[in-house]
Design a protein around this nucleic acid. Structure first.
Lengths: 114, 114
DNA sequence: ACTTTATATGAATAGAAATTCATATAAAGG
DNA sequence: CCTTTATATGAATTTCTATTCATATAAAGT
């Protein structure tokens, strides 16, 4: 596989590998939301949300549309949805085997203590 | 969506969001390889490879099997392959800098032919 | 023009992850 | 049992990413 494809994969997975961004994408899956709505619903800092949205925009995972003073964000690409769904499949599959969940619980414990 | 599902998604995407790990997974897609083969083929540091494999193992993305002195690694889960394929779809779309509409048109063409 | 509301951005800092180095373990062969 | 080969791991350091703070821009209402 070519290096630039790997780099692109890395980029998109890196973007998806973040709780805030995943939560935002999950929300946008429903419908378009303005930045202030996202901030209110997800109870996140304005600046943090704006920075995360910038990253998602730059990677073309979301699209924007101005509406008066507000800016509406929506998912730009059905691939992203498919990707999320697939990952969910993997996750639920792994959860059924229950060892992965045990591992995560362990990790969380480690993080508490460390 | 529940918080722990988001955390699971974050975990797996974070793992996939790394060039070395992606390259290793890409290689293992072919067949099982020993650690030393991976090191030689991908021209990476022994320690780095070992650390990455540890992470992939802990997340159950790969499985191991001892064969004498060597340890063979292989993919443990077809979901991971699907996930990678999906991401590749997204990536090739982004690389071509197509719009969403162009992409959908293409997909419709593929479906006609396929 | 001035103020308010909505969003974006640059820069500094804090926090997380990757890399490297040294060392440990484990199997195989003499 | 000592050496070699294969792999793993802990700890220190470097590098990357996230968060926060201050400020900027932009539209709308007054």
């Amino acid at each position: 596989m070519k290096k630039d494809v790997i780099i692109e994969l890395e980029t998109i997975f890196k973007l998806l590998g973040n709780r805030q961004r995943l939560t935002i994408l999950e929300l946008l899956r429903e419908r378009a939301y303005s930045v202030s709505e996202i901030i209110a619903i997800l109870d996140m800092e304005q600046s943090a949300v704006s920075h995360q949205l910038k990253l998602l925009r730059e990677a073309q995972l979301v699209q924007t549309q101005r509406q008066g003073r507000e800016i509406l964000y929506c998912l730009s690409d059905s691939h992203v949805l498919t990707l999320l769904d697939n990952a969910l499949n993997h996750v639920s599959h792994v959860l059924k085997q229950e060892t992965h969940e045990e591992f995560l619980a362990e990790e969380r414990e480690k993080n508490k203590k460390g």
